[in-house]
Computed example of a mutant assay.
Amino acid sequence: MKMFAGKGRWKREVTGYEEWMSQLPSELHSIPLFNLSIPGSHDSMSYDLDIHSSILEPDRLKKFSRIYCARKIVCKWAITQEEDITKQLDSGVRYFDLRIARKPNDADPTRLYFHHGLYTRTDVKTVLNMMNDWAERHPKEILILALSHFKGFDKKIERPLHTHLMNAIKTLFGSKLVPRKGTPTLKICWENKRNVIVSYDYRRNHHPELWGAIKYVYGNSMNPINVETKLCQELERTPRPFKGFLVCGLNLTLPEDVRIFKYILRLCDNFPNVIHRSLPRLLQWVNEQASKTPMNIIASDAATRDQFVATVVQLNISKHA
């Protein structure tokens, strides 16, 4: 951390992001994690999509799963992250949007993958092991893993699959799990040697070690102006101070009706390009909006690009300088 003078008092700035939480000023160690500004990645595993898998979404393209060109188009417009999980962690991302799916007719009934339009190549067990290893090497960095969606969890297998996955998560992370009871702070997490928070979006999740669903607000539009307007509305109606985690999603969202073809049929464009054109404007909005309405977790597409992490982390220093 470096310090510099400004307007008659000292201000501090985090200079490295692999361990940015441990660099925060001591006065931030005892505030609720709900009140910290935390960078996150939207559809965190989308860098790993398998072009050879069937199409899960959008519904209008599912029937074209056997056509390579159709899968290629879906892949172009479903990739929201460019770097793998380890690089996202190293860059300072601390919230992960992990969407789970089971492939039909898989020989292993408990093997699970991630998804966004297509299935991923890497399974859930492998990625969670990677995150657990990273958490062990960085005990002062708090990871927030949000597991949701659970495609392919048919009614006959839904309950045993969820039970298996929740028990596997508890076994893997063990004593590193932050229980959902109480209000976590950096200081409390560090003192108890716990640095993994798992949000599991399932109605039968009664495990005290696993948190429930985290509210995620987003603009539901491909237009950054519309995204900003919707997020402003959501933030203004949210009670303060936060009583739990809240995700403010900067992500752009493709239409679910025929308007989707306006985007996916652009031969010389793709989702990462669209994101890179819009992210600077959205980050400017974040800086302006944060002075009016506090934001907790801020999630983005292309979370490792364009100073996203630096902008979000610096909000903590700016508002407590």
Rank of each mutant, 00 (worst) to 15 (best):
K176Y: 03
V274H: 10
Y200C: 09
T238C: 07
Y200F: 15
R277F: 04
V178I: 13
V227G: 05
T171H: 06
N195D: 14
T171F: 01
P255F: 05
L283R: 06
E256D: 13
Y200H: 09
K230R: 14
H164A: 12
V196N: 07
L235C: 06
P208L: 08
L235D: 02
D201I: 01
L235P: 04
L265G: 04
T253N: 12
E228V: 13
W211V: 07
Y216P: 00
I214H: 04
P179W: 02
G182I: 08
H164N: 12
N167A: 13
V198E: 05
A299T: 10
I298V: 15
S175T: 14
R266Y: 00
R259T: 06
V274R: 12
A290K: 00
R203K: 13
N226L: 12
P241F: 03
S300H: 08
K292R: 15
G174A: 08
I298N: 06
I260Q: 04
T229V: 09
L267H: 06
Y216E: 01
K193P: 00
R240E: 01
N251Y: 09
L165C: 06
A302P: 01
G174W: 01
N167G: 09
G219R: 04
V198F: 03
C189L: 10
P208S: 13
T238V: 01
L283K: 03
T293F: 03
L265V: 04
R281T: 12
I169D: 04
L250S: 13
W285R: 05
E288M: 10
P280T: 11
R180V: 05
P241T: 06
V196Q: 04
L231Q: 11
T185H: 12
H164G: 03
N192D: 12
K243A: 07
L246H: 07
I275L: 03
V258L: 09
R180K: 15
A168N: 02
P294Q: 10
I297T: 08
I264Q: 01
M295E: 10
T253M: 06
N270F: 02
E191Y: 01
M166Q: 14
E236A: 13
R237K: 15
H164L: 02
P294G: 06
V198Q: 02
I298T: 10
F261R: 11
F173R: 04
N296W: 02
H207Q: 11
E191Q: 15
A302R: 08
W190V: 10
W211C: 08
R266A: 05
M222E: 07
T229R: 10
V196W: 02
